[in-house]
Design a protein around this nucleic acid. Structure first.
Lengths: 139, 139
DNA sequence: GTCGATGCAAAATGTTTGCAAGACC
DNA sequence: GGTCTTGCAAACATTTTGCATCGAC
């Protein structure tokens, strides 16, 4: 099933309409690694109202279509693992660019173990790394 | 060196005054595991202006006295590792309470390795786990 | 046609700034 | 006393809400 099909199916199965606005926002999210609300609103400007963008993102979050991830101490939006692949991020503290980090089974296993040792059933995890990238180390 | 001494020294060494407001906010932060800006402002109400609380927290962040940590997709403030101990958090998705998770050397090692394999020199990391706590699992 | 989704306007919440008055060293 | 810090007021930014209209099914 393609991402677009999965998207349409997810909406329908949960009894939400597949509207132009929702499709457009989904498409915009598909084109980027991650995006802030501000940028997203800007990209849809004059076609979708701010309030609707917020409402859409909120709906998408409930339906696990997107995730809000922490970059610095603000958040950015990105499509969930169902639409891309499971990953984390590392951000350079100097140039502020961030890169995806691919899944690491060993690490995930440790997290699950740690959670369960505290009596928790782990359902989600996010890891935010920051450091100095190879380019900025040379400055 | 006690936390209060370290706090006073940190301010002085960086040429900032040890004022009543800063001491009060530091004290409030010492009394909690973590706190939102809203709660912090509330707790200082009628004695310290909102703007000053923001300015103080911003200063504390630059001086590495506090850290902004992600809880949900908002952030909370807590004293940095220099004043407590290095840890992460796990939050229950049902009751929303969060617990600290103690340091795990094995995990930290993996993160450093992973960062350096991408050319990054790791300087900070935050891990946010969420799951269902033992109490809520029984509901 | 019905019910849910959107735009618009406004309010609520969160954060920052300029400036005059006050506190620290 | 001089400089840094604070309060106050206002601006700015972000997010939410009510309601009338519009669009999907």
């Amino acid at each position: 099933m393609s991402n677009n099909e999965l998207f349409a199916t997810t909406l329908k199965e949960n009894h939400f309409s597949l509207t132009k606005s929702r499709q457009r926002i989904f498409q915009l999210l598909s084109e980027v690694e991650s995006i802030t609300m501000r940028e997203l609103i800007y990209k849809t400007n004059h076609t979708i109202d701010r309030a609707s963008v917020y409402r859409t993102i909120s709906l998408f979050e409930n339906l696990r279509i997107i995730e809000k991830i922490k970059i610095g101490f603000k958040y950015k939006i990105e499509l969930s693992d169902l639409y891309s692949y499971h990953h984390h991020h590392i951000t350079c503290i100097i140039c502020h660019k961030s890169k995806p980090i691919h899944e690491n089974k060993q690490l995930e296993k440790i997290l699950i173990t740690q959670a369960s040792s505290l009596g928790y059933k782990l359902s989600k995890h996010q890891i935010e790394l920051s450091g100095i990238c190879s380019v900025c180390q040379k400055l």
